[in-house]
């Protein structure tokens, strides 16, 4: 059984242009103001790039992400295109899709959200403050500032959303991989399977042990299934009962289960908890269990004559 962390985040529909307009109450007039402000600064975007990279060079991430100059100039070119796109004042689903790709890229290269949000703030200051040449009416300038800020916030929502989804996806994949790795039912010999149980066994994991071991038994038609609990320090009633159920289920499928690596503490717990130990075969070490398994399937392991033992 795999547990997906908060599936609501993964399955929520992508942010649309209409969502953004509604949430931030962006009107067509706002978009017009963005275009107007764009006409003031868009021909001087090289200035923006200069200011922005003066700031970026001081950031701790800079040397990590821009170690080669070619990459730097490519990113600068993309950034200029980005602002052209921004100041064209169109907020449609294609625009949103382009912004989402930026979020994906940031998440993929491992840039932190903190660094991204700081860069948004710096961009706002550069665009609205440093690059402004004072040519607009005072009120018009204030309105433009408000409209540009709204649009920047729209960008941020899309990028943060994409970023979150990307990290969420990674997390889900990792959880699944971890779950699969945590129950490595391995074929040790023809008809012998072994499952080393390490760490904490909780209910989802116990269920996972049940399903993956039975599946493997069906696939391999194994006759002996060794559950090695050497790596388990404590066992509680629920887990012990679950192991008992696994051994019963395997017997129905023609496979005998052996619990190996039972430490004195676990043995004591099992007896004191009143678990029906008589119905499980147990052994102290994996070696003993393996020896018994070989006997069950009628295999004898003998030393090759003439081989030095040490």
């Amino acid at each position: 059984m795999v547990h997906h962390p908060s599936p609501s985040l993964v399955h929520a529909p992508d942010v649309s242009a209409a969502d953004l307009r509604r949430r931030l109450s962006i009107t067509d007039h706002d978009l017009l103001l963005v275009r107007l402000y764009g006409s003031v600064i868009v021909h001087r975007l090289d200035e923006f790039v200069r200011h922005f990279y003066a700031w970026l060079e001081l950031q701790p991430e800079f040397s990590h992400f821009f170690s080669d100059g070619e990459r730097l100039s490519r990113v600068q070119r993309q950034q200029t295109e980005h602002w052209h796109d921004f100041f064209s004042g169109t907020l449609d689903d294609e625009y949103v899709a382009r912004r989402r790709r930026i979020g994906d890229t940031h998440a993929r290269i491992g840039l932190s959200l903190a660094a991204y949000l700081a860069s948004v703030d710096v961009s706002l200051t550069i665009l609205l403050d440093r690059m402004y040449d004072g040519r607009l009416e005072k009120q018009a300038y204030i309105d433009c500032q408000r409209a540009v800020t709204k649009m920047i916030h729209a960008d941020t929502i899309v990028i943060v959303d994409a970023y979150t989804r990307m990290t969420q996806r990674t997390l889900t994949e990792q959880t699944r991989a971890l779950m699969e790795m945590s129950t490595p039912v391995t074929q040790l010999w023809d008809s012998i399977l072994v499952l080393p149980v390490v760490g904490i066994v909780d209910t989802p994991r116990a269920n996972d042990i049940m399903t993956s071991s039975l599946r493997r038994i069906a696939e391999t038609r194994a006759k002996v299934f060794i559950i090695d609990v050497s790596g388990v320090s404590v066992i509680d009633t629920a887990v012990a009962n679950h192991i008992l159920k696994v051994t019963h289920a395997t017997r129905l499928m023609g496979c005998q289960s052996v619990l190996s690596g039972v430490s004195p503490i676990i043995a004591r717990t099992m007896v004191e908890l009143g678990i029906d130990v008589g119905s499980i075969e147990t052994s102290a070490t994996l070696r003993d269990a393996l020896e018994r398994a070989f006997r069950t399937i009628g295999v004898m392991v003998v030393p090759v004559p003439g081989t030095p033992t040490r």
Partner: peptide, 21 residues
């Protein structure tokens, strides 16, 4: 496998019952 898992999980009494593949 699903039948065995279901029976064991639902607490069916499997004592004395032997299966083969």
């Amino acid at each position: 496998a699903p039948l065995a898992a279901a029976l064991a999980s639902l607490g069916a009494n499997l004592e004395g019952v032997v299966g083969e593949a």
